[in-house]
Design a protein around this nucleic acid. Structure first.
Lengths: 270, 270
DNA sequence: GGGTATTTGTCCGTATGTATT
DNA sequence: AAATACATACGGACAAATACC
């Protein structure tokens, strides 16, 4: 027996899905039915379904059944923007999203003062234990959860006059513009580092991801610099990877076409 | 009992891992031992281990045991380069990697002529069924598999003199430089779209990923343009997400520090 | 709202196969 | 070859979620 039985069942079902025999959103036969069709035990059938689930082909709903997953038309977030007018801050994202006929909301920030732990301190080149301002925000598109974001600012910025950073109010013009106004600090660039990892419990709840952690999240670390190379801010943004794509434009790139409505069958890397 | 038993067991083990009680690389008690420790059946213990496995905390090795996964020091790939001197092509990657004291190898390309299917045709703005050259390559760092890459070129480029595209030989100066030499076609920019998905069977084999598909891969679609906005190429690159990070630099960014050796405990988004 | 049928989720025990040491 | 440890497969029982009447 080269191939275990549950794999054979899974691959047969996969074939039926990819051939269109089972359409998107269609319900699979129940575990009892599959047990009879494949002459296997229910647990073996369940192993096959679990295999398909891990690969994102089907999803199970307790009390209802097993269904072929429907492809999600992804949101596209462009990471390359004007380095000096935002780059990851509130205002830019809103402009992006509204341009594609979608409505973006952002929560009021939850503000904390905390000691910079290892990663934050190193990213901002602070001594371990230095004070930082953490601003947590939730972002929605058309009412559905889109991203979780936390920005860390050295407390020294507040001492230089950027007192709005420690107020639990959205900075509508964007913190980049605000820092320029409030204390003549000008962001001239940023560096993003993109990783992928399983979601934690908070993220599972907020994004309504499957509890088994099979849908990973993008985690983007953005370190912003001024013209002397000083580190102004670390922003950590988390996106669920199943409904998001990231875009990077380099050099001369033609303007994007208007983003289509969710049901049109176009490639999402257009 | 709000929490199922296997979750309680999993969370207890997770706590023991994150507290350092079980160190990286350490072997967990065997399933039989855990069955006795938690007074559960072996199947329930196995469900707990599967839960930890999906989250990348442990791995099982048949005949050996279950082990706490060791963190991998990731490779960092910068997506933003000079738009006109490569940007994702062979030579640039090699320079990047060698600068961090690692040795990069690339396979000779496997070249195919094929009809552009839906996604490729749309990305290159070709009519469906138009001929394209596909060049598949495998990339290694220090001998370990790093990325799989396929570039698609419109056949019209070959007719304009870029005959090396249809030869199964690496284009050492990079195809961007080659196209400039051979037929005066100059790339001026590119656009990347980053997605994450489970690996297919080829990728599992090549990258030696776990067969259950729990480690996703980055898939980067790069469309390159000339100054008129014409689409010169589509390059699809796949990286395993467990050992890779992507970097995007925008605006003025200070030079990177030398990349450290794998065993130093620095953040990988430095 | 309540009750019932359906469907998946959890948990058990057991047996046998396969990979590794 | 033997021992160990995980992988596969079976069958059964009950719980929990959902849909429907």
């Amino acid at each position: 027996m080269a191939e275990p039985m549950y794999r054979q069942i899974a691959e047969d079902l996969q074939r039926r899905i990819e051939s269109g025999d089972l359409e998107q959103g269609a319900q699979l036969p129940t575990e009892i039915d599959l047990r009879e069709q494949y002459e296997a035990s229910r647990n073996t059938v369940r192993d096959a379904i679990k295999w398909l689930t891990t690969r994102g082909l089907v999803e199970t709903r307790p009390g209802q059944g097993t269904f072929v997953v429907e492809k999600i038309h992804p949101y596209v977030t462009t990471l390359t923007g004007k380095a000096d007018i935002g780059g990851g801050d509130e205002s830019v994202y809103i402009a992006e999203v509204e341009a594609s006929h979608r409505k973006s909301d952002i929560s009021e920030p939850r503000v904390e003062i905390q000691r910079a732990d290892g990663v934050i301190a190193r990213s901002l080149r602070l001594d371990a234990g230095a004070q930082v301002v953490a601003r947590h925000q939730q972002r929605f598109i058309d009412g559905t959860p889109w991203s979780l974001q936390t920005s860390f600012y050295p407390m020294s910025l507040v001492q230089q006059g950027a007192i709005a950073l420690i107020q639990a109010t959205d900075i509508v013009q964007g913190t980049v513009a605000y820092l320029a106004e409030a204390c003549d600090i000008h962001q001239t660039g940023y560096r993003d580092t993109i990783a992928v990892r399983p979601p934690d419990e908070n993220e599972v709840r907020f994004f309504k991801l499957p509890a088994d952690g099979r849908v990973p999240v993008f985690e983007i670390y953005r370190v912003a610099f001024d013209k002397t190379g000083k580190r102004l801010r670390l922003t950590v943004t988390v996106y669920p990877s199943d409904r998001n794509r990231l875009r990077v434009d380099v050099g001369e790139v033609p303007p994007r076409r208007i983003q289509r409505l969710p049901d049109t069958p176009e490639p999402d890397h257009d």
